[in-house]
Design a protein around this nucleic acid. Structure first.
Length: 262
DNA sequence: CCTATAGCCTGACGGC
DNA sequence: TGCCGTCAGGCTATAG
């Protein structure tokens, strides 16, 4: 699930539940997803702190602590956050469990353990180390930057949109969704796109990402002209009635409508 | 440099 | 109902 709109939804959830509350206990339950710091050390660093603010970059959620350090979370394919109290019972697949002064807990969960948790002194250095490109919804990301990034690229648009070093935040689902909205074939080479089509792609990108955040990245909230609920072979295209096709691009299963995406 | 592929894990789903 | 194979929305390391 967790691409840019999902992570932004987690961020808002985190803000609503977990800011400005003292962490009285930190349990790093399993260590696989905790990177660059030992679970014991992470527990020590978090205990007694509060979270002061959050930001997101691409698929990363960055929470600033009162100690001016950063808890940085990536949600892999199956990561999520749950805020709950003890009456709601034990939870499975918890990797980091924080207990606040009000006795509520925040759990970072991830069954498939492809996610990652970091604790960093310097968030800019972290983003640099990860070689992340700009976040398309931050800092007024412009068409001219987009065009410049696309210059001379021969790869498919699908691969281009998912490349985190070019743009941070778009994954398999939303790259499909953006191309579906713009009416462009996912295998079209980047350098074969006309200027007007590339403008359309750019505006579809912003629109799809922004609107998906409004829908809280929840499939049940999406309007019917989105591809999301039609990601099945031979489904009927909700835009034009064509037959949805499934192909593999850059190792990922991609759904599109050959009738209106060319 | 660039592109393609395997592998990391667990759970859900469809077919028999 | 149960078992088994396949697939899953990410990322990295490695090979060519």
């Amino acid at each position: 699930m967790p691409e840019l709109p999902d992570v932004e939804t987690f961020r808002r959830y985190f803000n609503k539940t977990s800011l400005n509350k003292k962490i009285v206990k930190a349990e790093a339950v399993r260590s696989r997803v905790i990177k660059g710091i030992s679970p014991q050390n992470l527990q020590k660093k978090l205990k007694g702190n509060t979270f002061k603010s959050t930001e997101r970059h691409g698929k990363y959620l960055i929470a600033a602590t009162s100690g001016n350090k950063f808890l940085i979370m990536h949600f892999g394919m199956t990561g999520s956050l749950s805020y709950f109290n003890d009456s709601e019972g034990p939870m499975k697949h918890v990797h980091l469990l924080l207990t606040f002064q009000n006795n509520y807990k925040l759990a970072y969960r991830d069954p498939r353990t492809f996610g990652a948790i970091y604790f960093e002194e310097n968030k800019e250095a972290f983003l640099k180390r990860k070689k992340l490109g700009p976040d398309p919804l931050k800092g007024n990301y412009s068409f001219s930057s987009f065009k410049k990034a696309a210059e001379g690229k021969k790869e498919t648009l699908k691969a281009f949109l998912m490349d985190q070093t070019i743009l941070a935040g778009i994954g398999n689902i939303y790259s499909d969704e953006i191309l579906f909205d713009a009416g462009i074939h996912p295998e079209k080479p980047v350098n074969k796109l006309s200027k007007s089509k590339s403008k359309e792609l750019f505006s579809s990108m912003k629109k799809v990402l922004r609107d998906s955040i409004k829908y809280e990245a929840d499939a049940s909230n999406f309007p019917d002209d989105y591809l999301l609920n039609y990601r099945k072979k031979n489904a009927e295209c909700p835009k034009c009635g064509g037959k949805i096709k499934k192909i593999t691009i850059a190792g990922r299963s991609s759904y599109f409508c050959p009738n209106h995406q060319r």
